[in-house]
Write a protein that binds this DNA or RNA. Sequence first.
DNA 1: GTCTATACAATGATAGAC
DNA 2: GTCTATCATTGTATAGAC
Lengths: 211, 211
Amino acid sequence: MEERLPRDKDPDSEARGRLLAAATDLFARKGYAATAVREIVAAAGVSPPVLYYHFGNKEGLFLELMREAWGDFESTVDAALGETGSARDRLLRLASQVVDLFRAHVGVARVMNSIYYGPPQGAPAFDFDSCHTKFRQAILGLVQEGVSGGEFRPGQVGDMAWAIIGAINIAMEIELCHPELSLGPEGLLRVLHLIFRGIEAPRVGPEEEAL
Amino acid sequence: MEERLPRDKDPDSEARGRLLAAATDLFARKGYAATAVREIVAAAGVSPPVLYYHFGNKEGLFLELMREAWGDFESTVDAALGETGSARDRLLRLASQVVDLFRAHVGVARVMNSIYYGPPQGAPAFDFDSCHTKFRQAILGLVQEGVSGGEFRPGQVGDMAWAIIGAINIAMEIELCHPELSLGPEGLLRVLHLIFRGIEAPRVGPEEEAL
DNA sequence: GTCTATACAATGATAGAC
DNA sequence: GTCTATCATTGTATAGAC
């Protein structure tokens, strides 16, 4: 047979990278269990043993994918926490950066999301929980700062954090299932702004009272 | 009396019910693709042909599961929409009832959620989108009423709806991945209340101004 | 309606040549 | 590092008896 494959003498890193990219795409489009090793290697243009050489097995490939994505996420949160400004501004910035990262890696984000909130799909255990907790603690800390500094109402730190996380999650979920409705970076800020300010119309009376 | 047709889906069949329950549990714990027909029938205490007799195949069983869950959800939304009261109260009631339903059927909810936001996992196509859209439209309609009636601020109907949906989704997601942190029925109401009222501390100046 | 037994395709993974 | 060829296992689904 004629040999005209463009992958004749590929450096090792190239096949590895193509496998990671192909797996991300397939896991995101079909799911972990529903994706066969054969499909991954075919999409990457390599033979089965190449996958086992680089990652040990299907689970190893999956874990490597999750590790890289989690590293990106962790860096983003750490960077956002290092910045300065009012609690409100830092919350807005953290939210924007997290959703931007999500938007830039929807594929792997869909996989992580689906396995964290849903069934494991046969995928090996990964500590998604520490990702989630780190993010939750970051938001919680910023809200606490806002309350301590008098920016936010006192006494409902936990509920405030959930409201904000809810807005961030919704922005990401829209990207997953209705990208045509995407809030975009400004939309997320608008929703958060609204949560800070409140939905209800201002009272007409002389002063606002607690309910 | 006329005999039942060979492929009739008998709702009174004991085996049928056990298959549905077993499948819900396994799909929720492992995922659709990762669950073998052999496991389902073993958990239901029947032999493989019983599944094929009642549901045609694995996909048919899955679709039946989704149809029943979607019916429950639709009824809940319709019932909540038929009630009376202020937009605010009706929103709170709809939110509570939807999250209560979710809590009462976490298993099937986890499966639906995971497939809607994530990869299909090899499961057959189901119109989750119309479920989601119906719910979104219900919230949107109630918010619109609130704005028309002067209860809510004008001009941000869409963003308001997302903020509220975000809170409802977060309440459900906590049930999925951190049930020990569950907001409970009161917690959801607290978060929604907060969103209505706003997170920021009231201004000390004479009057609130738009930003 | 339910069983036992089985057909047969697809799966994850490996041996051994180069 | 990568290939071709193949293994053992597990998957969905069915035939035919009762």
